[in-house]
Write a protein that binds this DNA or RNA. Structure first.
Length: 823
DNA sequence: AGCACGCCGACT
DNA sequence: GTCGGCGTGCTC
């Protein structure tokens, strides 16, 4: 221990593919300022990285297995106040352990993008450098080295990045080492918090009258200047700079002139970037809860009162009023003086809900999601960190919001797949949220109209408390679903058509009644692929094992995996034949077909192609809600959320493609999709119709989805999975090897497989499938999947741990353990 | 992730 | 004879 009593050693997690922490020594200059949860800059190997202090040590004890000589010093303490709270530190430690992810990477993912410090090299000229500069003859002053030295001498120290901006990237890189070796410049590493600054904004206000410079100032005003002053007076004397220029139709120089005259003052002030600024808040209806809702809420608030961990699965059909329960539970949580966190799959889909939260909780709401700018996100994050915001709504990564005194977590649409992070660090936000609630003695509500099988299973086994809301608010009837057997349609017509007579007739009726319809087809583009009738060639992606989808409006063939794009050929690339045939249909074609059938109806399309533009999704939804659109065609994104009272017809064009996917959850996904979209119909007074076109009317996922019969679907799905040995009776791990070289991919897979076999001797796990073989090529990467299952998750995890320790290939293998057996 | 160390093929 | 391929192992 040193004199101040500060532990001289710190344990640091680095955000790299290493699954251990490392011990560093605190230099005297930092002394006892270092705290757990602070970021540090350390030399790791040869590189400079941002690490995170995860523990302090008084001495190097033997358990650390480090030689004092090997311990390096911390280079820089980035935070005087730790950014990472003890709760988040503990949560990330658990995630790192549970999902076999490097702790440092999890910590990095837990901080808002703007707060992850970049390490920059800072250049400064030395005394020798100045001497050299003075010695340089004038005619040589234009060499690159001289330019850099002069710049540093005149402008002071700057980052390599800044120097490169002026002098060129490659050119600067070439001379740096040489200048340093000559001793003319110094290069120091420094952590830069660039993006994480508070936003400053310029405001203009009228100066008090006695400060006006000249008594005749008013006479000298130009027309533009007068407009500026009038605008300011109208706004009670103050406006943001940019808003003033707009309102007064004045330029910045006009305002500058007024400032010189002393008539206005310009000042920069810190402002909060508010993602909800300027939105209209909806009036708050005073909704009376029905009996089922009241009972559900009572159970939840009772758990909140106890301040102990409690988990609920809230299984409420669409329209049963789950949202109202969330809001009341949050309110109850706030009344206890605690904070609430709500996770949603995709915040763009909940603009209405975000506003409602704001209307309820005002400034105490913070919003976190990926399309916020780094600055906005950082501001919201800091408001949470400082406990100014006590209600947080956000997508997957909001799980890590540094919420103080967490009392309630709500995971809406808990079955949604976007809670699963698909890249390192791999984790499932819903399950990690359950763990967070557990650790922080909070109540958690998992809500869905179509619970995931694993959550329902957990509710059945008593791990979660089950609350069922089987009825719609106000006793409105559920839509009645009808299956249309497309084989019969084909037999009748003798040719293939995307839209059945039944669906066309139903559309006709709906339009005649001036009501609205939703048509779902979970495939974008115009045609599935292009087939050569002469030689059978299907035009595929050069990078992936899939066919290219034809997009008519863009006149392009697109790969939906890697976004590869090419122009549709006039002739077959293989045999030069002109007999190219468009096979299958996507949303684009359905839209065309509908326009042809119903030329007077107003149709619109909603899929990833039409919503690439920011806010396009919201605009279309608003137009549909205002009945400016009669028929809305779209992919699964139209199946979520939103009340459209005038929608009385939902058509599902083809659900069969989803059933054929090589995914053991294919039936579950199809069931969920149909159920979700069926919930869109008949929310008003009229009972809605749902027409489902399929070539497999006997499939249980379709049958039970039409009957809105979750319990029976669940039983069948369990049987099915049992037969294949899939969850929920087993924990399933998927190890994905990806490599751009096929031979290498196979080699690595074989090696990993051998390691698993060896490690498995006493683990009671079963490796599924034959010897490793490539399953697909996507984005140029050959993929090989190894599946392992076990009765207990823990044994599966330790097996993988052992195998990976043996191959040390973890950073190049993605591990996904089916998140079933939690805790 | 980077980077060094080390052991086998095609070249000045 | 050497340059360079990437397999393997390590980073406090």
């Amino acid at each position: 221990m040193n004199g101040q009593g500060a532990p001289p050693y710190v344990e640091v997690a680095v955000p790299l593919g290493v699954r251990r922490t490392f011990t560093y020594r605190l230099p005297l200059a930092i002394g006892n300022a270092a705290q757990v949860g602070a970021r540090v800059r350390v030399t790791f190997g040869k590189q400079q990285v941002t690490g995170y202090i995860v523990a302090l040590h008084d001495e190097l004890d033997r358990a650390l297995e480090v030689d004092a000589r090997e311990v390096r010093e911390i280079e820089e303490l980035i935070d005087a106040e730790p950014l990472i709270t003890p709760e988040i530190l503990e949560l990330t430690r658990w995630i790192s352990d549970y999902y076999l992810a490097p702790w440092g990477e999890v910590l990095k993912a837990a901080l808002p993008a703007g707060a992850n410090a970049r390490i920059e090299r800072v250049l400064a000229i030395t005394t020798e450098g100045r001497d050299e500069l003075a010695r340089l003859p004038e005619r040589r002053a234009l060499t690159l080295k001289a330019q850099l030295l002069r710049m540093l001498a005149e402008q002071g120290p700057m980052t390599v990045r800044q120097a490169q901006r002026t002098l060129g990237t490659a050119r600067v890189a070439r001379i740096l080492a040489e200048l340093e070796r000559a001793g003319w410049i110094s290069i120091k590493h420094q952590a830069q918090n660039a993006a994480a600054r508070a936003k400053r904004r310029k405001f203009v206000r009228l100066a008090p009258i006695e400060e006006h410079a000249a008594p005749d100032a008013a006479r000298a005003l130009t027309a533009a200047q007068t407009r500026v002053i009038e605008a300011l007076i109208a706004a009670d004397g103050e406006l943001p700079f940019t808003e003033l220029t707009e309102r007064a139709r004045a330029s910045a120089s006009t305002i500058a002139t007024l400032e010189r005259k002393g008539i206005v003052k310009i000042e920069a002030r810190e402002v909060r970037r508010d993602p909800l600024a300027g939105v209209e808040l909806p009036p708050l209806p005073d909704i009376e809860l029905n009996r089922a809702q009241r009972e559900a809420l009572d159970q939840i608030t009772a758990a909140l009162d106890q301040r102990r961990y409690a988990a609920f699965l809230l299984h409420g059909i669409t329209g049963s009023g789950k949202t109202e329960i969330y809001i009341r539970a949050m309110r109850a949580c706030l009344e206890h003086g605690r904070s609430a966190l709500m996770l949603v799959p995709e915040i763009a889909l909940t603009p209405v809900f975000s506003r409602r939260l704001r209307a309820h909780f005002g400034d105490r709401v913070a919003i976190l999601h990926s399309s916020l700018s780094a600055g906005e996100r950082f501001d919201e994050w800091m408001r949470i960190r400082r406990a100014e915001a006590r209600v947080v709504i956000g997508t997957r990564s909001a799980l890590f919001a540094p919420v103080q005194d967490l009392g309630l977590i709500v995971v809406d649409e808990e079955h949604d797949t976007s809670y699963r992070q698909q890249e390192s660090p791999f984790y499932h936000a819903r399950d990690a949220a359950v763990m967070r609630a557990h650790k922080e003695r909070a109540t958690i509500i998992l809500g869905s109209a179509t619970p995931s099988l694993e959550s329902f299973h957990n509710a059945q086994t008593g791990k979660y408390r089950y609350i069922h809301l089987p009825e719609r608010v106000g006793g409105r009837p559920l839509a009645q679903a009808e299956v249309i057997d497309m084989r019969a349609v084909f037999a009748r017509r003798g040719r293939e058509e995307a839209l059945s007579d039944e669906l066309l007739e139903a559309l006709e009726e709906t339009l005649a009644r001036r009501e609205q319809a939703i048509i779902l087809l979970n495939r974008r583009g115009y045609a599935n692929f292009i087939l050569c009738r002469a030689c059978g060639e299907r035009i595929g992606c050069p990078q992936c094992d899939v066919t290219l989808t034809y997009h008519k409006r863009e006149r392009a063939l697109l790969c939906h995996y890697c976004n590869f794009r090419r122009r549709p050929p006039a002739r077959c690339p293989m045999c030069q034949s002109q007999h190219l045939h468009l096979v299958g249909e996507g949303t684009e074609k359905i839209e065309d077909l509908l326009q042809a059938h119903f030329p007077r109806a107003r149709t619109a399309r909603l899929d990833r192609d039409t919503t690439a533009r920011r806010r396009a999704y919201e605009q279309t939804i608003m137009r549909f809600a205002a009945h400016e659109i009669d028929i809305l065609v779209g992919t699964q994104m139209i199946a979520k959320g939103h009340d459209f009272p005038k929608v009385t017809l939902v058509g599902v064009v083809s659900v069969d493609a989803g059933l054929a996917l090589p995914d053991f959850r294919a039936a579950e996904r199809t069931f969920q999709l149909i159920t979700q979209v069926a919930g869109r119909a008949g929310r008003g007074d009229r009972r809605g119709r749902v027409l489902i076109q399929t070539y497999h009317p006997e499939h249980y996922a379709i049958r039970f989805a039409c009957a809105q019969d979750y319990a029976n679907f669940y039983r069948h799905e369990i049987e099915y999975r049992k037969a294949f040995g899939y969850p929920p009776f087993f924990a399933l791990a998927s190890l994905l090897i990806q490599d751009d070289d096929l031979g290498r991919a196979v080699k690595r897979a074989e090696k990993l497989r051998r390691a698993l076999d060896r490690a498995n001797r006493d683990h009671n796990c079963r490796l599924l499938g034959p010897a490793p073989a490539p399953i697909a090529r996507l984005r140029g990467q050959h993929r090989i999947q190894i599946l392992a299952k076990a009765r207990r998750r823990a044994s599966l995890r330790s097996l993988i741990d052992l195998a990976l320790a043996e191959t040390d290939d973890l950073d190049r293998v993605s591990v996904e353990i089916d998140p079933l057996h939690l805790m």
